[in-house]
């Protein structure tokens, strides 16, 4: 291992301060494997130098480091029970709402786009069930954000390989909502047009995004420290409409945030609704 303990701790602290990501003890190899190239490309002799450069950097290098350290692993309809509960509990309500207003959905850690496109597909399915009575799809807006600029870049292409597709996409939906071109599957425009992608750090201010009917913040806060988690849950609470929904990962729990969220178990999966009136803390 070429990275020293001190270098590791400096980089780890930097990452935590700027992205919220917490790298575990003994993960020196992770820093070394992912950042040595950036270190050399930026003319640094060692990780102390890189850390110094990062302190002075206003964005580009910082983004690259965060990008290299975040893993982009997402699945289509990650777990079946989540897809089921969204289809059965959340979407019908959102579709009903769309008769009178625009409905806004936020995929807060969208990685390479699987989650927002999955929701887009489920929405289409839900609207189709209603036939002529259904609202126009244009009444829905999905905002999809991620801290990693390269994940966002890939998400925007809406093109997926066989390997990426094989993780959880049902064949009948694949057929309906993707165009196959050789080994590549491309999301059809009717789903793509629902989603707007932006790079965004969950540590930053949420107010720019406005209010949402449904927020998904799944399997991301597990990498964050308790303080930051609490802060993010509170910001989500402020950005959710009173009758809105929050979805988090199956293995996550907003323990200690029960003052702002109420858990609702539907078909074995947990969703959360905001408690009280959404006001600043």
């Amino acid at each position: 291992m070429a990275i020293s303990k001190e270098e590791f701790l400096l980089i780890r602290t930097f990452l935590h301060d700027h992205s919220g990501i917490l790298i575990g003890d003994g993960k020196e190899y992770l820093v070394e494997n992912r950042l040595t190239v950036l270190m050399v490309q930026n003319g640094c002799e060692n990780f102390f130098d890189l850390h110094k450069k990062l302190q002075k950097d206003t964005g580009p290098l910082r983004n690259k480091v965060i990008d290299a350290m975040t893993t982009n692993e997402t699945l289509w309809f990650r777990d079946a029970s989540f897809a089921a509960v969204v289809s059965e509990a959340v979407l019908p309500q959102l579709v009903a709402k769309a008769a009178t207003q625009t409905v806004r959905i936020w995929s807060a850690a969208c990685s390479t786009g699987q989650e927002p496109y999955s929701i887009g597909i489920l929405l289409h399915e839900e609207i189709k069930k209603l036939g002529a009575k259904g609202p126009p799809v244009s009444k829905f807006k999905i905002l999809a954000t991620d801290i990693s600029p390269s994940a966002i870049m890939i998400a925007k292409t809406a093109r997926y390989s066989q390997l990426a597709i094989s993780r959880g996409m049902k064949p009948e939906l694949l057929e309906k909502y993707f165009t196959k071109n050789g080994m590549v599957h491309e999301v059809k425009p009717e789903v793509r047009s629902l989603v707007e992608f932006k790079q965004f750090n969950l540590k930053d201010d949420f107010e720019q995004h406005g209010m949402f009917d449904f927020v998904m913040c799944r399997n991301v806060l597990i990498y964050f420290s308790e303080d930051l988690k609490r802060d993010i849950y509170r910001k989500i609470h402020r950005g959710l409409l009173k009758d809105g929904w929050l979805a988090i990962g199956a293995s996550e729990s907003p323990r200690g945030y029960t003052d702002v969220f109420e858990q609702v178990i539907i078909k074995g999966a947990a969703l959360f609704r905001p408690k009280g009136v959404s006001k600043g803390a």
């Binding site: 494997n33 990685s111 390269s150 890939i154």
Partner: peptide, 19 residues
């Protein structure tokens, strides 16, 4: 111009190529 170590994920490689 770039140096990508193996193993890599498809996403990593794709973003390096795009860059």
């Amino acid at each position: 111009c770039h140096y990508q170590t193996k193993p890599f994920t498809q996403e990593e490689m794709a973003s390096r190529i795009m860059e």
